[in-house]
Design a protein around this nucleic acid. Structure first.
Lengths: 325, 325
DNA sequence: CTGAAAGCGCTTACAG
DNA sequence: CTGAAAGCGCTTACAG
């Protein structure tokens, strides 16, 4: 027999399949003799339990879906990695799917969850969904308010940004730009632009905002616009890691601007440009903690436990790099 | 009823469950009246078939596992993304797991496949496995020879490298270094160093190799060693994208070397440093084609079809950037 | 401590 | 074209 089943083990051990199941799961007291006997046969037969049978009988897949716009993006890749580790530690596997910025793909994936491909999902979306699309599904959202029953994990976009902008001001910046790739839907991320505007207003400085809806891969559009309109900025707040890296690379080409003396840069997200020797000053999202929280919340949802906080905001860490004074 | 089953649909439609199943799968001729009747009830009940039931009865999960050393690495993130798209196009979902450079984790994941969490796996490993560990599993390997029954997808490491080194020589380089993060096990990747050595020998040039076993995140060790020992190199072949990016960032700090005039650089993999305006000259792996081939081969294996070629080597594309003359 | 039986939600010969 | 029944490989009350 190529793939022995629990029945084969039971027969060969001379016990019932229920007993084999109990041995496998340590689910109740088993006499030592029985235990040994069954274990021996399991080894002899090289028996491996079939997860699908278990899933069906338990109505639980122990799979978490992770839905992101794209996989090949340093922030999402890191997020997926940390979610995988957190999930694995709790006995869950992850199913990864990318929406590729297409809402129909997101719907397709949500459907798979309704079909019990996974017990629930951690969802990063930039699209508008009706709350009813999530009905009956266990979902945790990152950065987006998706509905009142859907917990959200995010960062202190407003406070961290305010602190960053104040840092630029305190180190002498007079003319500070905001560069961002605007989310297409209302998201916590929008608070970054708000914090920037509020802070500049408090200090009587004139704002300059470029905040475009742009897909990953086209970040240069934002930078182009900035470089074209650039007058005499001495500070720039950049709303994401790719933008920051793109900006830095572009400025290096120009050769006439020295960082941080002529221009200071602070980015959101963290520094993913792999440049250990000249890191960007950044508001680093605690991705590992966020991933852990996502998994924890999702499993609570799956287990129908009560969720304490529907909004879970993590503090970014201000990490001084070489792009600020 | 919160989650109607096929039985509920059958009862309400006044047909047998087999008929509902046939409607769902278009698996045989159905009278139009029956079809309409059943479809109507499916909609009324908002019925969604349960994938686990299907998996158990068909003994097929339609899930592919992707096992990589780390997820948060531009090459692997891109690979995962392309595999997901290729798999999705064929009706498969992907389960992603990272070994985190630990062989025990790889074994854990292989076990999950034996447990039918997935129908098979696309496997990138740097570790030594016994061929019997893969027995009975549908596995496709990238870059590594894992056993005679395991198809492998790779690139023309030798030829592409030879061409790159010759390019450096033809553009005037006299002293060319090889920088690499050596795979800990025999892998097609090792052919890069061989090609480098052979080519230098042919041209009577003296080789200089730094090829260390180094995990992702510690690529600086290689670069450090190179910068310390650096004498008067005018060319460097770098065996991977992270190394290339690290090297370039480090050299920028030094300020006394102009690229490509003083030093030319060519890397393997492709250019993942997100620097559109000053890309690295690179031997770009056709990751999309490779991903497609992996999925195609794996599904053939799962379907127990005959595999034509056990070794599938793709040609890298020489992409001229700004780091060579 | 243990076993027989029902059940999880599907698919698929088989018979009609 | 359709239905009853067996089967996929487990778990879990229930009874002992």
């Amino acid at each position: 027999m190529s793939h022995p089943t629990i029945k084969d083990v039971a027969n060969k051990s001379g016990v019932g399949i229920a007993t084999v199941s109990r041995v496998l799961n340590n689910s109740s007291q088993i006499s030592p003799q029985t235990y040994e006997k069954v274990m021996k046969v399991i080894k002899e037969l090289n028996y491996v339990p079939n997860a699908t049978g278990k899933k069906l009988s338990q109505n639980r897949t122990h799979v978490i879906a992770v839905i992101v716009p794209v996989i090949n993006h340093p922030y999402f890749a890191k997020l997926i990695e940390e979610i995988e580790l957190a999930a694995d530690a709790r006995g869950y596997s992850i199913l990864v799917a990318s929406s590729q910025h297409r809402i129909e793909r997101e719907r397709e994936i949500l459907k798979r969850i309704a079909q019990n491909e996974a017990d629930g999902a951690i969802f990063v979306t930039h699209y508008e969904h009706k709350e009813e699309e999530f009905k009956g599904l266990a979902i945790v959202s990152i950065d987006r308010h998706l509905g009142k029953d859907i917990p959200i994990v995010t960062t202190d976009n407003y406070d961290a940004t305010k602190k960053a902008v104040e840092y630029l001001i305190n180190t002498g910046c007079k003319k500070i730009a905001f560069l961002g790739t605007k989310p297409s839907q209302a998201s916590e991320v929008s608070l970054r632009a708000k914090a920037y505007l509020d802070t500049l207003k408090e200090h009587n400085l004139e704002p300059f905002v470029i905040n475009k809806i742009v897909s990953h891969g086209n970040e240069n559009e934002v930078i182009d616009e900035f470089l074209n309109k650039r007058h005499d900025f001495d500070g720039v707040y950049v709303s994401g890691c790719i933008l920051a890296n793109t900006l830095r690379n572009r400025l290096e080409e120009l050769d006439d601007i020295e960082i941080p003396n002529d221009l200071q840069i602070i980015s959101y997200d963290g520094d993913f440009c792999l440049n250990n020797y000249s890191p960007t000053t950044t508001l680093e999202q605690p991705i590992k903690d966020m991933a852990n929280k996502c998994v924890e919340l999702l499993i609570q949802l799956i287990d129908e436990e009560k969720i304490e906080n529907m909004i879970n905001s993590f503090n970014c860490r201000f990490v001084k790099g070489k792009t600020t004074k």
